[in-house]
């Protein structure tokens, strides 16, 4: 997991020291696990609208 985390960080332009990667790795795993909720939910029919308020 930490290798994948490191790859994603580099893609984001972040070159973190190893102790920072080790500190954040457990949270990356937690966040990745939580993210699954959004991929398991049926969201396909919904446009990612930005107009939260206007049509109310």
């Amino acid at each position: 997991m930490s290798e994948s985390f490191e790859t994603i960080l580099k893609h984001a332009g972040l070159n973190l020291p190893i102790d920072e990667i080790n500190r954040l790795s457990p949270y990356f795993e937690l966040y990745s696990e939580t993210l699954k909720q959004l991929y398991e939910a049926d969201l396909t029919a919904h446009e990612p609208a930005n107009q939260f308020i206007a049509d109310n």
């Binding site: 993210l35 959004l38 939910a41 969201l43 396909t44 919904h46 446009e47 990612p48 609208a49 930005n50």
Partner: peptide, 8 residues
């Protein structure tokens, strides 16, 4: 994906 969730 998060924006679609927000829409729902």
């Amino acid at each position: 994906r998060a924006l679609r969730a927000r829409s729902i």
